[in-house]
C-alpha cells in the first residue's frame, strides 16, 4: 500500500518536473527578469501616471460635455458624448487588466515586497464594488504574507475594473435608449468615479511593485 502511495506521488512529481522542463523558455524567462530589474521602471511609472490622468480626463470631459448637452435638451449630442466617454473607458480597461496580469507574474519574481494596504470600502459607490472590496479587505486580514496580499489586491482590482466597466456600458446603453431618464446618468457617474478610484489604486499598486524592485536592486 505504502509503495502504491509513493508511486502515485512519484508519478505526480514526474509530471511536475517534465511539465516544467517542457514549458520552460530560457531566453523568455531571462528577458522577463531583465525587464523587472532594469532601471526603466521609473520611466514606466511616469508614463503610467500620465496614462491614468489622460484616460480619466477623457472620460470626465465626455461626461461633462454630455451633461451640458443634456441640460440644453440636446439629447442626441448628450448620448454621443456619453458614448465617447464610455469608449475611452472601454479602450483603457483591457490595458489595465493586462497590466494587472503581468504584475501578478512580476510580483512572484520580486524578492522583496513593499507591504500594500487593502482597498477602502468608503472610496466606492457601486454596491457590487463595495461588496468585492469588502470581501477583499476581510481576506487581507486573514492572509499572512506580503506576496499573498499583493496578489489579492491585484485580483480585487481586476474584478473591480470588470464590474465598473459592465455598469458603465450598461448605463451608457440605457441612457442612449432613454436619454431623459436620470438613473442611467447617475449610475454612469458613480461607475466612472469608481473606475477612476480603481485606476488610481492600480497606479499605486504599480508604484509599490516598482518600489519593492528598487529596494531589491
Amino acid at each position: 500500500m505504502l509503495l502504491w502511495v509513493l508511486g502515485v506521488l512519484g508519478f505526480v512529481c514526474l509530471a511536475v518536473v517534465i511539465g516544467q522542463v517542457a514549458r520552460y523558455r530560457h531566453e523568455h524567462t531571462v528577458k522577463q527578469w531583465d525587464k523587472l530589474l532594469s532601471p526603466g521602471m521609473g520611466f514606466a511609472v511616469q508614463s503610467l501616471e500620465l496614462e491614468v490622468q489622460t484616460d480619466a480626463a477623457m472620460a470626465d470631459s465626455g461626461l461633462q460635455g454630455a451633461q451640458r448637452a443634456r441640460d440644453r435638451q440636446d439629447l442626441a449630442e448628450a448620448v454621443r458624448l456619453l458614448e465617447l466617454s464610455c469608449q475611452a473607458i472601454e479602450q483603457a480597461t483591457p490595458h489595465r487588466l493586462r497590466r494587472l496580469r503581468a504584475m501578478a507574474v512580476l510580483i512572484r519574481m520580486a524578492a522583496a515586497l513593499v507591504p500594500v494596504r487593502p482597498l477602502r470600502i468608503r472610496d466606492y459607490r457601486l454596491r457590487e464594488l463595495i461588496a468585492v472590496v469588502g470581501v477583499g479587505a476581510a481576506l487581507h486580514q486573514v492572509l499572512v504574507s506580503a506576496l499573498e496580499r499583493f496578489l489579492l489586491r491585484l485580483q480585487v482590482l481586476g474584478i473591480g475594473f470588470r464590474l465598473a466597466l459592465r455598469v458603465l456600458v450598461g448605463a451608457s446603453r440605457q441612457a442612449a435608449t432613454t436619454p431623459a431618464a436620470r438613473r442611467p446618468w447617475g449610475d454612469y457617474e458613480r461607475a466612472l468615479q469608481d473606475w477612476k478610484t480603481l485606476d488610481r489604486e492600480h497606479l499605486e499598486t504599480f508604484k509599490a511593485l516598482a518600489r519593492s524592485l528598487e529596494l531589491e536592486g
Binding site: V16, V17, Q20, M109
Partner: peptide, 16 residues
Amino acid sequence: IWLFAAVSLVVIMFNL
C-alpha cells in the same frame, strides 16, 4: 524524485 519536484515547483511558482 520528490526533491527534484520540489525544486521544479519553486521554479514554476517564482518563474525562476
